[in-house]
């Protein structure tokens, strides 16, 4: 996977040095001072908040882009899932980095699930997931439940695509977090709305057998 190059940070204008201050003509509009970009901030900052509106518009365009290139709902979900995987590997690195001295590499299944449920969710959405369950039907299948997923807050799915859940992006993120931590798995997002939480989403995590052999 290739990492996109970072945009060059604009250099500070030389006019701000005191030597040239007296030569500046105020009637000529000077370019605004370069604002601190997201790349200038320290990665260690605990709170990296972004605008929800900006995210919602970008995500809306991303869904439209994927939708126009997909022939059915499952392909659209797959494309959203792939988008999320690029995010997931970085989210894991960032979250562990921010833990600082308390950082720990999880090697066991339950602590890893707990880590995703609490810490990864907190990095992404500023709150832990609502609950976690073990599947009674299949071995190595777990469910992480979010009552109000942030990414689908403003999205009304039309009736003819009722099985679509745009939280497939988050499923992709979770899948790649687990895979990057050496827990290969498949994650899918399913809408299971209740009267109280119409957007309730269940992320089904199905680990591969190799995880069981190791544990």
């Amino acid at each position: 996977m290739s990492v996109a190059p970072r945009p060059a940070v604009p250099a500070k204008p030389s006019s701000s040095t005191p030597n040239f201050a007296h030569e500046r003509n105020d009637s000529v509009s000077t370019p605004p001072p370069p604002q601190q970009t997201v790349y200038d901030r320290s990665l260690a900052r605990k709170r990296g908040e972004v605008s929800l509106s900006a995210f919602a518009y970008i995500f809306s365009e991303a869904v439209q882009y994927c939708h126009s290139r997909s022939k059915d709902v499952s392909e659209l979900e797959h494309r959203l899932n792939l988008l999320g995987r690029h995010i997931g590997v970085r989210v894991l690195e960032l979250t562990v980095l921010r833990e600082g001295k308390n950082a720990k590499r999880e090697t066991r299944l339950m602590p890893m699930l707990q880590f995703v449920h609490t810490h990864i969710w907190r990095t992404l959405f500023n709150r832990p997931a609502d609950s976690m369950q073990v599947s009674t039907e299949e071995q190595l299948q777990y469910m992480i439940i979010d009552h109000r997923p942030l990414v689908t807050e403003y999205i009304s799915v039309p009736r003819d695509m009722s099985q679509l859940n745009c939280a497939a992006l988050v499923a992709g993120i979770v899948q790649s977090v687990f895979s990057a931590a050496q827990f290969p798995c498949k994650v899918t997002a399913h809408s299971m709305g209740t009267d109280e939480f119409p957007d309730r989403t269940v992320y089904v995590v199905k680990f591969e057998d190799s995880v069981l052999k190791r544990v």
């Binding site: 509106s53 919602a56 809306s60 365009e61 439209q64 939708h67 999205i155 009304s156 799915v157 745009c166």
Partner: peptide, 23 residues
Amino acid sequence: SDYVMKNPFYTLDMPIRCHKFDR
């Protein structure tokens, strides 16, 4: 602007059919 403009399944200038907007 929240529930219609940020909805990827809404086409501009078309009748609004978004259940979250109604809600």
